[in-house]
Computed example of a mutant assay.
Amino acid sequence: MGLLDDLKVQYRMGGITQRLIFWNIGIFLISLFFYEFRLGVFIFPDWLALSSDPLTVAIHPWTLISYAFLHSGFLHLLFNMLVLNYSGMLFLTFFKEKQLVGLYILSAVFSGIVFSTAYFLMGQQSTIVGASAAIMAVLMATTTYSPKMPIRLLLIGRVQLWHMTAVILIIDLMQLMIENTGGHISHLAGAFFGFIYIKMLQNGTDLSKIITGISDWVVNISKPSNPKPFKKVHRNYNTKQNPTASKLIGRDKKQQQIDDILDKISRSGYESLTQEEKDFLFNAGK
């Protein structure tokens, strides 16, 4: 199996965090056809990056989401994807994948609006790109829900989750008026949204259902208008009485093998699979 096939399997079989990482990398690579390289960073046009000008945002409303999948350079992308992978893993300890997607998108929109409004009120003009605000929302949501969750940091050791989050917030506050003011404003807005998301969820309101509802609507309208009626299949495993039973059993064995491999991925990750198991999954998905 080639590298491309291996990536396809990882995308299909990996969790939503891995898919978000794929989307970030893919959109960033595509966006490089439209960038301008200036002062060591990638500068994107106003119809891709998020502008601080409310009129520009009104003309290009999709930038409230697109900016959260763009990055100013390869190191910016690498760092954010490492943090997204870690924060997403922590978040999915308690919540569903659809909630992660919903929180990511909604926090990006909220943080973008806060950034644009703040800069407009300050009489300044700029643009921002990056997934940091959405990632901060995911991290803050997990911290709000389980602040004493034990984590282990390289060179530091065992700490509680709120310790790490607090340090990140303090750094953002300290650098707010020194450099990258727009970025720090969006980070803090993302953290605030993550906090509000959990508090509303605990009171019975799941804001992520807004995104889930939209995605389900898109999926439903793309389905055929006249689907074929559902057909029941009665299985008889007595091969003497039913000559097709052996085929059904074969399919069951194949599905069981797929389930076993997926269980192994959930326990140990995709990298724990043997090459034979990877090839089997790839061929089964064709």
Rank of each mutant, 00 (worst) to 15 (best):
W62D: 11
W62Y: 11
W62V: 14
T63P: 03
L64F: 07
I65F: 13
I65P: 04
I65D: 01
S66A: 10
Y67I: 11
A68I: 02
A68S: 14
F69M: 11
F69Q: 01
F69R: 00
H71P: 00
S72Q: 09
S72L: 13
S72H: 08
G73I: 07
G73Q: 08
F74L: 15
L75G: 14
N80G: 12
M81R: 10
M81H: 11
L82Y: 12
V83G: 05
Y86K: 14
Y86D: 08
M89T: 14
L90T: 01
L90C: 02
L92A: 08
L92F: 02
T93I: 13
T93D: 11
T93L: 11
F95I: 05
K96I: 09
K96N: 09
Q99S: 11
L100R: 03
V101N: 10
I105R: 03
L106G: 08
L106W: 08
L106D: 09
L106Q: 10
S107G: 10
S107P: 09
A108N: 05
A108E: 02
A108W: 03
V109H: 04
V109K: 06
F110Y: 13
F110G: 01
F110H: 10
F110V: 10
S111Q: 11
G112W: 02
G112N: 05
G112K: 02
I113L: 13
V114R: 04
V114Y: 01
V114M: 10
V114Q: 04
F115L: 04
F115C: 08
S116M: 11
T117R: 04
T117M: 07
T117E: 06
A118W: 03
A118Q: 01
Y119M: 05
Y119H: 08
Y119W: 07
Y119K: 05
M122D: 07
M122E: 12
G123A: 09
Q124D: 12
Q124N: 12
Q125P: 04
T127Y: 09
I128L: 04
G130K: 00
A131K: 00
A131C: 11
S132P: 04
A133S: 07
A133K: 01
I135K: 00
M136W: 06
M136I: 07
M136G: 03
V138F: 01
V138T: 00
L139V: 00
M140C: 06
A141P: 00
T142R: 00
T142L: 01
T143R: 00
T143G: 00
T144R: 03
Y145W: 07
S146K: 12
S146Q: 12
P147G: 05
M149G: 09
M149H: 13
R152E: 14
L154K: 13
L154W: 13
L154V: 12
L154H: 12
I156P: 01
G157F: 06
R158E: 15
R158K: 14
R158C: 07
V159G: 09
V159R: 08
V159K: 09
Q160A: 08
L161C: 06
H163F: 14
H163I: 05
H163N: 07
M164T: 10
T165L: 06
T165Y: 01
A166E: 12
V167Y: 15
V167G: 07
L169F: 13
I170K: 12
I171Q: 12
D172E: 12
D172I: 11
Q175R: 15
L176G: 10
I178N: 14
I178M: 13
E179Y: 15
